[in-house]
Measured scan of single mutants.
Amino acid sequence: MAAGGDHGSPDSYRSPLASRYASPEMCFVFSDRYKFRTWRQLWLWLAEAEQTLGLPITDEQIQEMKSNLENIDFKMAAEEEKRLRHDVMAHVHTFGHCCPKAAGIIHLGATSCYVGDNTDLIILRNALDLLLPKLARVISRLADFAKERASLPTLGFTHFQPAQLTTVGKRCCLWIQDLCMDLQNLKRVRDDLRFRGVKGTTGTQASFLQLFEGDDHKVEQLDKMVTEKAGFKRAFIITGQTYTRKVDIEVLSVLASLGASVHKICTDIRLLANLKEMEEPFEKQQIGSSAMPYKRNPMRSERCCSLARHLMTLVMDPLQTASVQWFERTLDDSANRRICLAEAFLTADTILNTLQNISEGLVVYPKVIERRIRQELPFMATENIIMAMVKAGGSRQDCHEKIRVLSQQAASVVKQEGGDNDLIERIQVDAYFSPIHSQLDHLLDPSSFTGRASQQVQRFLEEEVYPLLKPYESVMKVKAELCL
């Protein structure tokens, strides 16, 4: 049975990233139509530049190519590739079939990587351009969430054990800070992308030097003109047959890092959902379990974690691919890159769409948070109580021993009897502590235990987050809708 299948058929496997999760716009960027249309555009740009620099290419040939950029006979191309065992030459023939007058000058002087690699770089750039505003929107939604809850005390956790208090907004800023680093890295790697350009079979530009009869300047002009037509500021000066596969490492490393950030955020949300302090959106008709109707599973956060793990592992592909590119190139890269580049971007696209949807509907339960604080705060307040007693004339050592005994009794009630923490009640009825009984409410005010959390939130948002989001103001209103 021949390899390949009808990918629109229910009898043929289709990647869930495309069929179930990723956005239509990201799927289109990695589609065959987008790819092969870009090949034709690159052939047109090459012909236009070659004509401008004096090669015998007519206006009629150029116009014929322009008129057929979208006229792609995919069936013919597939048949040609089956016959020739070469995808680029299959599309040269297919393009030439609908451009008979231009057929002889299509791909003039070029090698397969002229269309293959340059198209990949265009796709990487455009895919990054799709991700950047999506990530900015996630940051914006979380920034709104953090600002609104900047002063809401909550129990902090280290080692997932109760620690000092923080605020809900401050905790959210930990998430935002990681995503801001990801946004900066995505922008950097996007701006650092260079075009492969017009380089020939081993990167020496020998074929173009021959076409222009040894004119170095025209060869350099050709490279520059096509690079500018493709919208790049610069091209690699040095290439082998391909652009260095280190570029793929750079791009997928940034995406993998984004995956790590999203995994951490969504894990926190899942843990908070278990504590009943916070939940992701839950639709009115949504079913959490087929057997347990009360369940409210954090399905979206779980999906993000599941896909983020996949995204983090994909960076190993370009690392290994770059390491086995012998001399000017081997074909070890080809099949692998067809999979890992598309999957990385479709996965990143999915987790950003999902995280935006989550961040637009996060639900906080202040009463649950308050109750958990009441359970733990008495123990945390013991040092403040000791200091207040010393100020009232008591002995630190005597007070410490009193607190120690009462704390152990209260802990026994919590752990052995399943009761509430009654340390404060014990202190309130103990005559030894009568000098500070009137101060206990103040000493137990949760806001006095959150330090500068709310001020940190305000400063972080104003100095770091809002300036970073400013270039994306025009796209901030787009909502994230999930079908599944």
Rank of each mutant, 00 (worst) to 15 (best):
G5S: 13
D6A: 14
G8L: 12
S9A: 13
D11Y: 05
A18W: 15
R20K: 11
S23E: 15
P24K: 11
E25L: 12
M26R: 05
R33F: 02
K35G: 06
K35C: 09
F36G: 10
W39F: 06
W43I: 05
W43Q: 11
W45N: 15
A47Y: 06
E48C: 06
A49E: 06
Q51H: 10
T52I: 03
T52G: 08
L53H: 01
G54R: 05
T58Y: 07
E60M: 02
I62S: 02
Q63I: 11
S67N: 12
S67T: 05
S67M: 10
N68F: 05
N68T: 10
L69R: 01
E70N: 04
N71K: 08
I72H: 13
F74R: 10
F74S: 07
K75E: 13
M76H: 15
A77Y: 06
E81M: 02
K82Y: 08
K82T: 11
R85K: 08
H86S: 00
V88Q: 11
A90C: 04
H91Q: 11
H91S: 09
H91F: 06
V92S: 08
H93R: 07
H93A: 06
T94S: 04
G96V: 14
G96F: 13
H97W: 13
K101T: 07
A102N: 09
A103G: 12
I106A: 10
L108R: 01
A110W: 02
A110M: 13
T111W: 00
S112M: 01
C113Y: 01
C113G: 13
D117V: 01
T119M: 06
L121V: 12
I122G: 01
I123V: 15
I123F: 07
N126G: 09
A127I: 07
A127M: 01
L130H: 01
L131A: 10
L132N: 15
P133Y: 12
L135E: 12
L135V: 11
A136I: 15
V138G: 10
I139E: 07
S140A: 06
R141Y: 15
D144G: 12
F145S: 14
K147W: 06
E148G: 09
R149H: 08
A150D: 09
P153I: 15
P153T: 09
T154H: 09
T158S: 10
T158H: 02
T158I: 00
Q161F: 04
L165E: 01
T167P: 00
T167C: 07
V168C: 02
G169S: 05
G169A: 03
K170T: 01
C173W: 03
L174I: 12
W175K: 03
Q177M: 11
L179P: 07
M181I: 12
L183V: 10
Q184I: 14
Q184R: 12
N185D: 01
L186Q: 06
K187C: 08
K187Y: 12
K187M: 07
V189M: 12
V189D: 01
D191V: 04
D191K: 11
D191H: 07
R194N: 02
F195Y: 12
G197N: 00
G197D: 04
V198T: 12
V198I: 13
K199I: 00
G203A: 02
T204N: 11
F208W: 04
L209C: 06
L211D: 10
L211Y: 08
L211E: 07
F212G: 07
H217I: 12
K218E: 05
V219C: 06
E220S: 09
L222H: 01
K224Y: 15
K224M: 08
M225F: 06
M225L: 11
V226R: 03
T227E: 14
T227C: 12
A230T: 08
A230N: 05
G231W: 07
G231L: 12
K233Q: 05
R234I: 06
A235L: 12
F236L: 10
F236D: 04
I237L: 09
G240W: 03
T242R: 02
R245K: 12
K246S: 04
V247R: 02
D248C: 12
I249D: 10
L252A: 14
L252D: 10
S253R: 06
V254S: 07
S257Y: 06
S257V: 09
S261L: 04
K264C: 05
K264R: 11
D268S: 13
L271Y: 00
L271T: 04
A273M: 05
N274Q: 13
N274M: 10
N274E: 07
L275V: 07
L275D: 09
K276D: 05
K276Y: 11
M278S: 05
E279Y: 02
E280L: 01
F282V: 04
K284L: 07
Q285H: 04
Q286M: 02
G288N: 03
G288S: 07
S289N: 02
A291G: 02
P293S: 06
Y294H: 02
Y294K: 04
K295D: 04
N297H: 00
M299S: 11
S301N: 00
E302K: 00
R303D: 02
C304R: 03
C305S: 14
H310V: 11
H310I: 07
M312A: 11
M312T: 11
M316P: 07
M316Y: 04
D317G: 08
P318C: 13
Q320I: 14
Q320P: 00
T321W: 05
A322T: 14
A322N: 12
S323Q: 04
Q325P: 01
Q325G: 13
F327V: 12
F327W: 02
F327P: 02
R329Y: 00
T330V: 09
L331W: 00
D332I: 01
D333R: 00
D333W: 00
S334A: 06
N336P: 03
R338P: 01
C340A: 14
C340V: 14
L341D: 05
L341P: 10
E343L: 03
F345E: 01
L346R: 07
T347L: 14
T350H: 03
T350M: 05
N353S: 09
T354H: 15
L355V: 09
Q356L: 15
N357W: 08
E360R: 03
V368P: 02
I369K: 01
I369V: 13
R372I: 08
I373C: 11
R374F: 03
R374W: 07
T382D: 04
T382M: 13
I386V: 12
M387D: 05
A388N: 10
A388R: 02
A388Y: 05
V390T: 04
Q397F: 02
C399A: 12
H400K: 01
H400Y: 06
R404D: 00
A410G: 06
S412L: 10
S412I: 04
V413S: 12
Q416P: 09
G418V: 02
G419Y: 10
G419R: 10
G419C: 04
D422K: 11
E425L: 12
Q428M: 08
S434R: 11
I436F: 03
I436C: 04
S438C: 09
S438W: 15
D441T: 07
D445T: 13
P446Q: 02
S448D: 14
F449V: 05
A453N: 15
S454W: 06
Q456I: 08
V457E: 01
V457N: 03
Q458V: 12
Q458N: 12
L461M: 09
L461N: 14
E462G: 12
E463N: 15
Y466K: 14
P467H: 03
P467V: 13
P471Y: 14
P471C: 14
P471I: 12
E473R: 14
S474R: 13
V475C: 10
K479E: 15
A480E: 11
E481D: 15
C483T: 13
C483W: 13
